[in-house]
Amino acid sequence: MHITRALRVAAAVVAVGAAAALAGCSSSSGSAEPGKKGDLTTVKVATIGLTSDGSLLTGMAKGFFADEGLTIETSIVANPPAGLAAAQSGQVDIAYSPSIPLLNALSQGVKMKVVAPADGYPDAATSASDPASFDDTGLFASVSSGITSVKELAGKTIAVPARKAQLEVVIADQLKKNGIDPATGVKWVVLDFTSAVAALKSGNVDAAGLVSPFTAQALSAGNPQLAAPSIGFFETGATGLWTTGDATATSKKDVVSAFQRAIAKSNEYATAHPEEAIKAGLAYTKSTLAVDQVKVPVWPATVTDQDLQRPDDKMVDLGFLKKPVDLSGVILTK
């Protein structure tokens, strides 16, 4: 989940691939005035296939976007770097991105704007009796390692799906809080989630960062959860964001504003009807999970300055950013 230093090499390849793959579904040539003369303006939206997409989907079904003169055309891209690259180039109008890959992209000079919140965490989530109940990520130890706390990970091997990306960043935060230098105090290895679960079982890694539904697989195999790293890092507020390229924000200002109004209604509806939204998200992603197996997403009403400033500051402190990102004007007001 990251146009990070992934934008330098790996994501540069991904971006090119995304551009090619999306070339056939470039931004609509429809009017920049949504609903002009009764016509609907097509808005191309890139997602990464999350349950929280249910807000967007129920909003489409309920007609919130049509009410604003928009028709939404979705596509699932491989990862946030691909979506950010497509949005920055104008091949899609809106793309989902967590704040970490967005901040990495901004630090590399990629011109992006935040349109609206997509998902996040509730107020005071970190002080809840069970923060993990809000976090769909987890740091797990191999049951065969005997490790039961983050402090015991010094010198150990931790699997993540990509280097310098979202899970490594949030796990690094946990390591530092427990006195371990994330740069030199552990060995990072790259494994996809399926392979990471298998490596926990075999003991080939000491720990792994996972996301749902792989977290449930790790727990069912008896691997202890050491931390809920994402909620520990982000704490509260919007963490997943709907973004657009600077050029689109300017050339399709009315369309972007209409999207903001419609997604606000969608998030409000999803919050009031979470089961309906979750079912829509599961169907969209073709998941085999039941509704009661999914942690209920939080769909924030707004994106605040602190929702970007907090992870920006932490990424600098952890060494993932050389200097703070200039966030002035990044969040579009309604």
Rank of each mutant, 00 (worst) to 15 (best):
A283V: 00
P161D: 14
V150T: 14
S27V: 06
S212D: 11
D254V: 01
I263T: 08
K322H: 14
A18P: 02
N204M: 05
R310P: 00
E276M: 05
I72M: 13
A20W: 09
V77E: 11
G146R: 13
N267W: 07
S266Q: 12
I278D: 05
P311E: 11
S75Q: 11
L241E: 09
A301I: 05
N204K: 11
M1G: 07
S99E: 14
L56F: 10
T239Q: 09
V110S: 06
A78T: 15
L84N: 01
F234H: 15
T51F: 13
F320V: 15
V45E: 10
A207Q: 06
P81H: 10
E73P: 06
D181H: 09
G245L: 00
A23D: 10
A216P: 02
T137L: 03
S266V: 12
S97P: 08
I158D: 11
A238Y: 03
I231N: 03
P297K: 01
A154P: 00
D135G: 04
V13C: 08
W188A: 04
A208N: 08
A249F: 08
P274F: 07
K44A: 08
K164W: 05
A207E: 06
E68W: 05
T333G: 09
K151V: 09
L153E: 04
K36N: 05
Q88V: 03
A228D: 05
D312S: 14
G30I: 05
L57M: 04
S266P: 13
V170D: 01
K279S: 14
D305G: 12
A228C: 08
L200K: 02
Q217R: 09
L84E: 14
T4D: 14
S230E: 10
V115T: 01
T58P: 00
T244C: 13
S144Q: 14
D292S: 11
P311V: 10
T271S: 15
P80T: 15
L84M: 15
L84G: 03
A277K: 02
A227F: 01
P117A: 08
I278S: 01
D307H: 09
G17F: 05
E275V: 05
P98F: 00
S75Y: 10
A6Q: 12
Q225P: 08
A86M: 01
V316R: 12
G179F: 02
G83C: 03
I100E: 14
V255E: 12
E276V: 04
D254W: 03
P300N: 04
K164A: 07
G146A: 13
G185V: 07
S287C: 09
A280G: 01
M112T: 03
V255N: 09
V211R: 03
